[in-house]
């Protein structure tokens, strides 16, 4: 399938946007103004960019604990997203959620979750809702290789298959569940093989290549929209940083790190190169796009920093629709 120039430009722009957003988060973390922990999306940008570019606005995504990239890619307001990470009143969750619950429902994000593998059942319900309400919306569920060892993986894949739900399962296989390598926890060489047991078609793609991710998602989304049921796509990728904010990731072998974090394998470089080769953008365009995105991210950073914290007693709000 030939990917159009407009799409290639969008894939580049979206991949870069996530990269710059996460670099900003990393900087703010360096300033010691990000409370709690962080699971950065750096390195995996092509997955969220490729997947979300294949969706329409009213489609839904279910995020994971490593959710900043998903939310930004789906079109969340960067000001509100960064403010949320800093625990500010202007955050998308009014400072109640933070990194692990960063969410903006009105752009189609069902939620980010701190419990690994807990998003899968929610995605099943959202897809069931799309089916029952007879919309043509689809649901995409992001989760990691680690989540595929949880019981909800089997339950949810099974349910999605028997009901032929409009659902795309995206496994972001970064080869480590925190510090445990997948070779220690999964007997098969891919996660995708597990889908076969549920009669779900699957595919393994290079998760650092936004075009590959996009093409696989387009096909899966088409099947889902046409009533053909779920698909599982395993996107093989790699974290640029550790699992969370203080993890130096010393447990990863040097050769492996050198391969994945090389210039040639870098998600932004990969899509930039393709987009330029295909004539979708020039070097100059790339610089311009970068400059524009950087400006927006910097502005979001300032917005977040300058925003107020919530009043302490706001801790009591939003437990119920009406206070009881």
């Amino acid at each position: 399938m030939a990917v159009g120039k407009k799409t290639l430009k969008e894939l580049f722009s979206r991949t870069l946007k996530i990269r710059l957003f996460e670099e900003k988060v990393w900087d703010l973390f360096g300033e010691n103004i990000v409370p709690g922990t962080l699971h950065l999306y750096l390195g995996q940008e092509a997955v969220a960019a490729g997947v979300t570019t294949a969706l329409k606005k009213s489609d839904w995504i279910q995020s994971s604990h490593r959710g900043h990239g998903h939310v930004v890619a789906k079109g969340a307001d960067m000001n509100a997203a960064l403010a949320e990470l800093l625990g500010k009143k202007t955050g998308s969750c009014k400072g109640k959620g933070g990194s692990m619950h960063i969410t903006q429902l009105d752009v189609g994000v069902l939620g980010a979750t701190g419990v690994v593998a807990s998003g899968l059942p929610i995605a099943v319900g959202a897809a069931l809702s799309c089916q029952m309400r007879k919309t043509d919306d689809v649901v995409v569920c992001f989760f990691g290789d680690g989540a595929s060892n949880n019981g909800t993986f089997g339950e949810s894949l099974n349910m999605s298959a028997i009901w032929k739900l409009p659902l795309v399962w995206i496994v972001e296989n970064n080869f480590y569940a925190m510090g445990t390598p997948i070779t220690m926890t999964c007997p098969s060489s891919t996660v995708a093989q597990r889908a076969e047991a549920y009669c779900i078609p699957s595919k393994v793609v290079d998760g650092n290549n936004a075009v590959e991710v996009y093409e696989a998602t387009i096909e899966a989304v088409k099947r889902a929209r046409e009533g053909g049921g779920p698909t599982l796509i395993e996107c093989q990728t790699y974290r640029m940083k550790g699992h969370s904010r203080f993890d130096p990731a010393k447990y990863r072998p040097k050769e492996e790190v050198d391969y994945w974090l090389s210039e040639e394998k870098d998600a932004v470089n990969v899509i930039q190169k393709i987009a330029i080769e295909q004539g979708a953008i020039t070097e100059k365009d790339a610089d311009k796009i970068r400059e524009k995105l950087q400006k927006a991210v910097d502005k979001a950073g300032e917005f977040a920093k300058n925003s107020d914290f919530p009043e302490p007693e706001e801790a009591l709000d939003d437990v119920y629709a009406e206070a009881i």
Binding site: P121, R133, T152, E155, N158
Partner: peptide, 23 residues
């Protein structure tokens, strides 16, 4: 009728509830 999958039954209810159904 659902499979014997309590966590996904409850989770499916959550997903349906936040997208316009009343499970």
């Amino acid at each position: 009728d659902t499979p014997i999958s309590e966590n996904t039954i409850a989770g499916a209810a959550v997903g349906a509830a936040i997208t316009g159904m009343v499970p």
